[in-house]
Nucleic acid binder design. Structure first.
Length: 862
RNA sequence: GGGCUCUUAGCUCAGUUGGUUAGAGCGCCACGUUUACACCGUGGAUGUCGGGGGUUCGAAUCCCUCAGGGCCCA
């Protein structure tokens, strides 16, 4: 044989590096496009891979979910599919900017010129070391260059980790969401949305993060419980009376445009249609009725401001109220008072102008106290406040001009289509579809995609300027063959750069797209949509989207949306949703706990197969407990991988008579046949399980068989395999053992790619990972004596127990034993005698196995 | 407040369309160094299937209800 010799002492150590290199060198996981094209789309299995946030750190949850994806991929590859399995990095967006700011101690100031010789103040800063005030301002281009540099470094580390984990991706198919191809795809998709009327610009109240100074989309919101206080404040009726409202935001009284109460609320019904004057400012505002006003909250009547929260926006829109904004994008009260705040009121307003929300509130409380409009002490409460999920300060609502993409929130037909598409995707587990449907059903506005940031895909439009230098007319768009474009550094088509900002010239859009506006196109990006139509047709729609449950509302939904808008189809036919990792106290694992073990250390100390086993033993959608101090499942996985090495080595160590080369045709002994028949059932079960994306079930059934194989079958036949019962019996045992190992290696291959490949290499030239998934036909036996293996196992346990009870070694010979057993057992009597060292075995027929009597002999002294 | 999900051995989890005595691994206890494996082997003990009610010849499984945990959305 040309294969590697059997090692004396097989070990897991070093297998990751050895086989990682071999797979790369041999192109084991390369997408064979020519073959795929020849065989047609149905021969392709395409995986839409989550591009991890390059600026984040990979944690154990990533390993969990990416392993689940890899299990499906490896199974399909062995089923003969051509795997299209790319990997991307999500490197654009706010997380990268924040990391770059901290790492290099810089911040972006787009007003500065580019400095080609710029070197950052330092490298390697962590999150705490860099305060905004200490950061060196740099030009947009310098800033982006640093982003580029750092993400490339980060991505290298990510790739190393994924390779160590044994992900079978085709590393020649890597993409970056900031790369030119991704930018082209994102801009092209946007332009098509625009031309179809699915993308539009609108002046609207927008959730705004004052720290990052950018607009934020609905999907990025997070409610946090925050302390607040109800302030009881008087509004004045024309007849000199007052209405008391309770508000947590007295600083917004200047922005008040109405009071609102529930239509059924008898206390306030007389006031509907009248007006009141605001305290301090004396602005006349209407008293209106709306069903969203909560009668049991505060005094049952609320002030509507432009804008204090999202309910204000609804009231403002539905009740057609005035607009009186007082809050700027920097989170401070605007310098100039809003419409209606005039004269003496403007002087009051000057007291809070320019202040932060916090200071303005304090000042307002003082002023209200002086005027007698504030009653009693503020009443402390805690209430949910909307935050940007990455932000540290509550979101404000400001009116800005932003870009949106329709998402079904205001379009019932589209909404219905999206729900319908959801039913065309097989979710694993199925109940995860509900999360998608809930999200689609609960959309409250179109998708805000513009961000006032720097490191991202530019929104590819320019604007005409009129003779006064004001923006006018329709946006200028590039042609698709000009993409990607950067309107902030490239002139608009048909213009010269010198005309930028000039009357009758142009300006470029400076906003970039939300990162999800690019990530929602991962199938199109990886499949080279419009750049390589033959490839795209071959892979799209994909077969599998694999991801965590936490990003159903963002990534999964937005990908469905883009595919529906652009292609009128689902982007993939299966969605595998992994659960998340909880610590031993069943709390969600978080970085802030400090005891997080990095995945690299985990792979290093337990071995990749062990870590994969841990992931594989959890079903999709099921949360997994993980205790870094005592990673039980990994230890078990490691033991299994070692056992696979040792068991295989043992099997291959038996001398093989020529007849054994005949494969299953040489298998003539009833016990051997029954073992293989049992294995056939395992193959059937495991195959069905993988077909249903139930890798945990496939692993469980394979593992259970493997241990029976090792503990019982292997022990039973080893004497015969050494040749103690003649050549035919030996050939039968050896052929059966080898066939079983061969099949089991392939069953285990997705979970334990390193150990199985190592063993496979001892007797094969190719990779186990491109070998054919085992089939019942290939095992090729008929179970004529069904249950024999199970029966002998049971008898063997009885004999072992007798020896254990006698505190004797299992080596102890048995001079005579009487077993009651079904007649079937006689077919394996010789093997049972051999393993039990039974000199004389008498069988009496019975329905149940029982050891009737046993006489132990003397252990030979050595 | 709404939706989803979970509750089975000390721990982590299986348990299919309801069907004999509810399983596995870990841990624990005892024994054993047998020519693959001490990162080992063999054997053993361990349950009010969250509580209550119902359907049924029969319920961990189906229905109702209560309690608790988790996630998502308000």
């Amino acid at each position: 044989m040309s294969h590697a010799a059997l090692p004396d002492k097989p070990a897991l150590e070093g297998l990751e590096a050895k086989w990682g290199e071999a797979w790369e060198a041999q192109g084991t996981y390369r997408f064979d496009r020519a073959a795929a094209e020849a065989a047609g789309k149905s021969s392709v299995y395409a995986v839409d891979t989550p591009p991890p946030t390059a600026s984040g750190s990979l944690h154990i949850g990533h390993v969990f979910s990416y392993t689940h994806m890899d299990l499906a991929a490896r199974y399909q590859r062995m089923r003969g599919k051509h795997l299209f399995y790319p990997m991307g990095w999500d490197d654009n967006g706010l997380p990268t900017e924040r990391r770059v700011q901290n790492y290099y101690g810089v911040r972006c100031d787009p007003s500065l010129p580019y400095d080609p010789d710029f070197t950052p103040p330092f490298e390697g800063g962590d999150n705490k070391s860099s305060k905004a005030a200490d950061q060196v301002p740099v030009s947009r281009r310098n800033f982006i260059e640093l982003c580029e540099k750092l993400t490339v470094e980060d991505e290298k580390q990510f790739e190393d980790l994924w390779r160590a984990l044994g992900l079978s991706v085709d590393w020649s198919l890597t993409y970056r969401t900031i790369g030119d191809e991704a930018q082209r795809a994102a801009q092209r998709a946007f332009l098509r949305n625009l031309s179809r009327g699915e993308a539009y610009q609108s002046d609207a109240p927008t959730l705004w993060d004052v720290t990052f100074r950018t607009a934020v989309a609905q999907a990025e919101l997070e409610d946090k419980e925050m302390p607040g206080a109800y302030h009881r404040v008087s509004f004045h009726t024309p007849d000199g009376g007052t209405i008391e409202i309770e508000t947590t935001r007295p600083e917004l009284i200047a922005a008040c445009v109405a009071l609102v109460a529930h239509p059924d609320d008898e206390r306030y019904q007389p006031y509907f249609g009248t007006t009141v004057r605001t305290p301090l400012f004396g602005v006349e505002v209407p008293v209106v009725a709306h069903r969203l006003a909560q009668q049991d909250k505060g005094s049952g009547i609320a002030m509507v401001c432009t804008f204090g929260d999202v309910t204000d926006v609804i009231w403002w829109r539905e009740l057609d109220l005035a607009t009186r904004p007082i809050l700027g994008k920097d989170g401070r009260i605007l310098a100039d008072p809003p419409p209606g705040v005039e004269g003496a009121a403007a002087e009051v307003y000057a007291e809070i102008a320019g202040k932060t929300v916090f200071s303005a509130k304090a000042r307002m409380v003082e002023l209200l106290t002086e005027s007698g409009d504030l009653h009693g002490e503020p009443r402390a409460i805690t209430h949910p406040v909307k935050f940007f999920e990455k932000g540290d300060k509550p979101l404000e609502i400001v009116t800005t001009r932003q870009w949106y993409i329709t998402n079904g929130a205001r379009d019932e037909a589209l909404n219905a289509r999206l729900i319908e598409r959801g039913t065309q995707v097989a979710f694993h587990p199925d109940f995860m579809r509900v999360r998608y449907e809930n999200w689609v059903g609960g959309l409250s506005g179109d998708w805000l995609i513009s961000r006032q940031r720097f490191f991202g895909v530019p929104i590819p439009v320019w604007y005409h300027l009129d003779e006064n230098g004001e923006i006018t007319g329709e946006p200028i768009v590039p042609t698709e063959d000009q993409l990607p474009v950067d309107p902030s550094s490239m002139p608009a088509p048909g213009f010269d750069e010198a005309q930028r900002g000039e009357p009758n010239g142009f300006v470029g859009e400076v906003d970039i797209m939300d990162t999800w506006a690019t990530s929602s196109l991962t199938p199109q990006i990886a499949g080279r949509w419009e750049e390589d139509p033959a490839l795209f047709d071959l892979v799209f729609p994909y077969d599998l989207r694999s991801q965590g449950q936490d990003i159903i509302r963002t990534w999964l939904f937005s990908t469905m949306l883009r595919a529906e808008l652009e292609h009128g189809t689902v982007p993939w036919t299966n969605a595998g949703i992994s659960g998340f990792i909880v610590d031993p106290d069943r709390k969600k694992m978080s970085k802030s706990k400090g005891n997080v073990v990095t995945p690299a250390a985990m792979l290093e100390s337990h071995g990749s197969d062990a870590v994969r086993y841990w992931a594989a033993s959890s079903r999709l959608g099921t949360d997994a407990a993980f205790d870094p101090q005592n990673p039980k499942q990994m230890k078990i996985g490691r033991r299994l991988a070692i056992k696979v090495l040792n068991a295989a080595k043992f099997v291959y160590s038996f001398p093989a008579p020529a007849a054994a080369e005949a494969g299953s045709a040489a298998v003539t002994e009833p016990l051997d046949i029954d073992m293989l028949a049992t294995l056939s059932e395992v193959v059937q079960t495991a195959t069905a399980a993988y077909d249903g994306y139930d890798h945990a079930r496939a692993l469980e059934v394979t593992e259970q068989f493997f241990w029976t194989f090792c503990d019982d079958y292997l022990e039973l036949v080893k004497e015969r395999a050494y040749g103690s019962q003649g050549e035919a019996g030996q050939a039968s045992a050896v052929a059966a053992l080898r066939l079983a190992i061969d099949v089991m290696l392939r069953l285990f291959a997705p979970v334990l790619p390193f150990a199985t490949e190592e063993v496979w290499s001892w007797t094969h030239d190719g990779s186990v990972h491109t070998a054919a998934w085992p089939t019942v036909d290939e095992i090729g036996v008929d179970a004529q004596h069904g249950g024999l293996l199970a029966l002998v196992s049971q008898a063997l346990i009885g004999v072992r127990r007798a020896k254990t009870d006698a505190k004797a070694s299992q080596k102890t010979p048995v001079t005579r034993a009487v077993l009651a057993a079904p007649a079937l057992l006689s077919f394996a009597a010789d093997d049972l005698k051999a393993v039990g060292r039974i000199a004389e075995l008498e069988l009496t027929e019975a329905d149940e196995i029982a050891v009737v009597s046993i006489e132990l002999g003397e252990l030979p002294t050595s």
